[in-house]
Design a protein around this nucleic acid. Structure first.
Lengths: 204, 204
DNA sequence: CAATCGATCTTGACACTGTCAAAATATAGG
DNA sequence: CCTATATTTTGACAGTGTCAAGATCGATTG
């Protein structure tokens, strides 16, 4: 039932192996030739499944976006105020950061900049990533329709700023800038408190 | 009065030219050999001023940190509440993002991750960058001592989260992720409002 | 002024990279 | 079986970071 001929779905094997290599030694140290060697094929074999090194990286990033969806839609109301509960924000922030840290090799490719910088994104990656963000904005808008958050919020603007916070934290933690791992929990707490306060207008 | 022999302070010329090249074509396309050619010296000449390509990039990043300082310390009080004025936050957020965008080639090296990822930072870069962040935390603490912001705030945690927001926004804007340039102003406004609200406990 | 010495630069070399063109091979359909 | 097509390999080329050895320059000293 294999659709591949010589090497049982080489395409997927290449992507998995590449991700593993990047996780182990960093994107900087990754090379197409080493990937080919590790996979046990010739140097140029990967080029029949990916037009480019860039295309391979885009494909991995795209897979990252598909694994990423964490807006499960389930909401908890605060019984007193009727607004969204702090715990929802806590879970969301932790979920985001957790994904970024545990799948750092994917996260780096998704938002590492290098892919975005040169504007040579695969069209399908562009589509997938934009869809991912749109889901986020839609989720916020949905909260608003249910009166779980302030009416005065602009969902797009809130999405942009809150995503900035989440992304900035993730970079901070992944790269170990100014911070060590033990600080993850309190930082997430603070960020969640800030975002919740922004959404509800309430003070913790 | 030149301290250099053959090429009037080659070290600085290399750094400037490198920054210019990275600005023009991106870090990805930057190479030591092209830099040497552009500067009009031999391929290995730069290696007598920088032990590594990495060391060169670190030196540029370090220069970026020195150009960066934007915590000027001047504060404006809100006449009614006696707390820090919204305009201070506005200016700070805009200043940060402005620097990041206008000096994107420096900012990328400072926080692009690639330098931090492999832990091969120059010692002096580590020092300079940490000093830069410490200045930020100290600034917040100073505000607190003057009772310009809430007493309940943990300056370190606030610094980490707010820096996350600023950094995330900058990446978002520099890389053009999910956003176009026209949105810079409203996004800065929203972020400043959120941070100000977090600092003062007030609602805009 | 000449000799020397250290700082600065160049030349040559090596292993490694991405990727193209052409050749080789395996598989599927007729 | 035989041919067309999908897949992989071999060979090649220009470009990369950087090391070792040599050449050259500037200043310092005798």
């Amino acid at each position: 039932m294999k659709t591949s001929y010589h090497h049982g779905d080489l395409r997927q094997v290449l992507m998995d192996e590449a991700a593993k290599m990047i996780r182990a030694d960093g994107e900087q140290a990754f090379s197409m030739r080493k990937l080919a060697a590790k996979t046990g094929v010739s140097r140029t074999a990967p080029y029949h499944h990916f037009t480019d090194k860039q295309a391979l990286l885009c494909a991995i990033a795209e897979e990252g976006f598909r694994r990423f969806m964490l807006f499960d839609g389930s909401v908890v109301k605060d019984p007193e105020t009727g607004m969204i509960a702090r715990s929802v924000l806590d879970g969301f922030v932790r979920g985001y950061v957790r994904f970024a840290i545990e799948n750092a090799e994917y996260y780096d490719l998704m938002f590492g900049g290098h892919l975005w910088k040169d504007r040579q994104l695969t069209e399908s990656l562009t589509r997938e990533s934009h869809a991912s963000f749109r889901r986020y904005v839609d989720g916020v808008r949905h909260w608003q329709e249910q009166a779980l958050i302030l009416e005065s919020i602009d969902p797009l603007r809130y999405a942009q700023v809150s995503w900035s916070t989440l992304h900035g934290m993730s970079r901070l933690l992944i790269d170990g800038i100014y911070v060590d791992e033990a600080a993850i929990e309190p930082i997430c707490q603070n960020a969640a408190a800030m975002l919740w306060s922004e959404l509800t207008g309430l003070r913790h």
